[in-house]
Design a protein around this nucleic acid. Structure first.
Lengths: 246, 246
DNA sequence: GCCTAGGTCCCGTTA
DNA sequence: TAACGGGGCCTAGGC
């Protein structure tokens, strides 16, 4: 058969002994994708047990472990970049143990019977993404008048003990303005974030006010702003970064 | 070879035409796992482009689409459940287009050349998890004195326009107490959450105070509580739900 | 290490 | 549907 793919190092259905061999040989050197019947225990920030079932297990080159079922975006269990130990328990059972040091967490996957194992060299290209909050802040920092007519930029990304202020402006009257920017509809949390920055500067004795900038806002958030003397400015980012799909 | 696995419906390296056939036949009926050279465009809440590279693509039964590279817990691109997948094929290229209706988002995966495709019936067992915030609220609701000596439970999960209060108590003097519970170290957001519930009830004319319950707290959060007349009660959940791993 | 914010967060729940 | 809280959230960045 001419049917090969150069990135696929190995692929097939294997017995437990060979699974251990493959994992020992390729873990952290390539991505290992397995379909196995397994039961799972996790113990750490929380703890969980999953009964025996057929699952998709992914061991990535950076030590990431993902266990997926047939539904859901999120894995059933996982371990971020961490180390893994394999142990063959018996003729028909293999234990994969992934340990995270801090916080201390253990994920134990007990594989029974045969597994379909694919060892493959995946890429690590990453992607170019547009439309992040950062992009909007960039636009606004270059055009402070979009927020307040005649305002000038004082600073960006200003640290306070309670978090980082997105943009700091001076309005035409010389008053300081704390600006919090959201890329999507602003909800209550954004208003409180802004509120606590404004409060912080007022306690320092500065005469400041706060503006929340977002393309949209929830009703209760708008009310919250009003109740606390904060302002809302509607702003939808220019489509500069938009990508059209063929 | 006696090497089979009954959950694996199909497995092998296929040309573009057969890839389309397999997706047509099995999408939403089984989980389709592919290793393919592909380029990707995404457009929706944000937008992104990924250059051609070898990636792991998962099409789940519920319509979830995941694209993984060799590193990271999170997928490079994805589409949540109930997305619709359409295919288009040319000489040597297959286009998989996953569409989410609301918000409108499109993920376009252009596969070139051969793919390793595994079609498999994965489980949907889910798991039993312990140590969620809910468990701690349960404990505390049954023992309000753990929070305030002599207090009695008034209600749980009380809705306000600004979110849901975890626990409402009455202290021995008859005063209402708003309680916010965290399963892990409390950070600034938790304090503000509590603050806005307390504020809401005060504006209604009620005489209430607020208590944040958590196993630990950050310094600035503790300061925030003090500055706003809120209290902190340290509480580590009993290990009732703990699971010991063999 | 602590701590905060951002995310195409996802996901469940309730009004 | 909108809107909010929870999550083993993950990840990046500042200190």
């Amino acid at each position: 058969m001419g049917c090969y793919l150069k990135e696929v190092i190995s692929s097939g259905i294997v017995e437990p002994a060979e699974l251990v061999e493959l994992v020992n040989k390729w873990f952290r050197r390539a991505t290992i994708v397995m379909v196995s019947k397994c039961s799972i225990s996790y113990s750490g920030r929380a703890s969980s047990i999953a009964r025996e079932s057929t699952r998709l297990i992914i061991l990535k080159q950076d030590g990431t472990v993902l266990v997926h079922e047939s539904v859901g975006s999120n894995p059933l269990n996982w371990q971020p970049r961490s180390s893994i130990v394999t142990k063959k328990i018996s003729e028909s059972e293999v234990e994969l143990r992934a340990i995270r040091v801090s916080p201390r967490e253990e994920l134990v996957i007990r594989v029974t019977g045969r597994s379909l194992v694919v060892v493959v060299e995946l890429g690590d290209e990453g992607l170019t993404i547009y439309g992040k909050e950062e992009d909007i802040i960039e636009e606004l920092a270059n055009n402070p008048s979009r927020i307040i007519s005649g305002a000038t930029l004082i600073a960006r990304e200003v640290s306070t003990p309670y978090g980082r202020v997105d943009i700091m402006l001076k309005d035409p009257s010389g008053k300081l303005v704390v600006v919090e920017v959201k890329r999507a509809r602003a909800e209550i949390e954004a208003a409180q974030q802004l509120h606590r920055y404004v409060e912080y500067y007022r306690r320092l004795g500065l005469d400041v006010y706060g503006v929340l900038v977002a393309p949209d806002i929830s009703n209760s958030t708008l009310k919250y702003l009003g109740d606390h003397g904060l302002k809302y400015v509607k702003y939808s980012p220019k489509g500069s970064g938009a990508i059209s799909l063929l």
